[in-house]
Amino acid sequence: MIELAGLTKRYGLKTAVRELTCVIRPGQVTGFLGPNGAGKSTTMRMILGLDHPTAGRALVEGRPYARLTDPLTVVGALLEARAVHPGRTAFHHLLCLAQSNGIPRRRVGQVLDLVGLGEVGAKRPKGFSLGMGQRLGIASALLGDPRILIFDEPVNGLDPEGIHWVRNLLRRLAAEGRTVFVSSHLMSEMALTADHLIVIGQGQLLADTSMAGFIEENARSYTRVSSPDRERLLDALNSAGLAATPASGPGADGALDLEGDQTVAVGELAAERRLVLHELCHHRASLEEAFMRLTRQAVEYQARDGAEDRRGAGSRQGWEG
């Protein structure tokens, strides 16, 4: 379990993470979602004690990270930037990490095989592709067989097969009862892997919800219908008590939208009134759209906030002058 309490990080004037409070529980994949620059990597670095919080704290199994004995056997992490010396072979890289935490040497070969790098253990990561580098990072996270796993954008640079592999790995680790905390800036990625979702924007918590709850709340569904005889269609829908609104967005010209799934009702109505339809289908707004809507609100809120701050400062100056 990971607990964040009022976790805050400022770099100079920039607030990267703002009073983040949440709990990341075992036995499920918790997705950490936010656009680039939202503060995901910074939060993860603070959990690992790499960056010092400006305020608040992060606890791992109830303790600050630095107080864990043999931390690699409790928490395994894949960080955003490659944390590998390019001139040290993959095997030796893992070996020196293993030795520092009393992890037996044979485990190094095991994790190399596990991530599919068994063949290149004796090679220097200098020549590794992005995907191989990512796999080596995952190997170092798994080294100590930890109860908690933290992955920062693990599928970056992976090919479709690699992405599929990471997804299954995350699911399996969670199914084994471990705490899995994984960040991404792609909603579509999270939708396929995460059970629980923590969304941040501009360093602030925007949502802390189960994946199912998020879908239910945000995935609006609608029926789109279009006809060359738009006026008659509108009349028909109105008289049948079906509320329709002009569709918006690309390729929507002239079409009408109805809330929910109304394909059956609209289709039967059209047949009854002998109306020609060019389109009739049920849409589900993508989670990506829902995510963007959520983060856009945060950005606007912040922009307004910032403007007020500036105005406040300006008037104070004026008053003093």
């Binding site: 690992l48 790499l50 630095a66 864990l68 928490v75 960080l79 944390a83 590998v84 990490l97 170092s140």
Partner: peptide, 14 residues
């Protein structure tokens, strides 16, 4: 130069 320091400090946080 390599970011190894993050892996090292994650392994030996004191």
């Amino acid at each position: 130069g390599t970011g190894m320091i993050r892996a090292s400090l994650a392994a030996v946080p004191v």
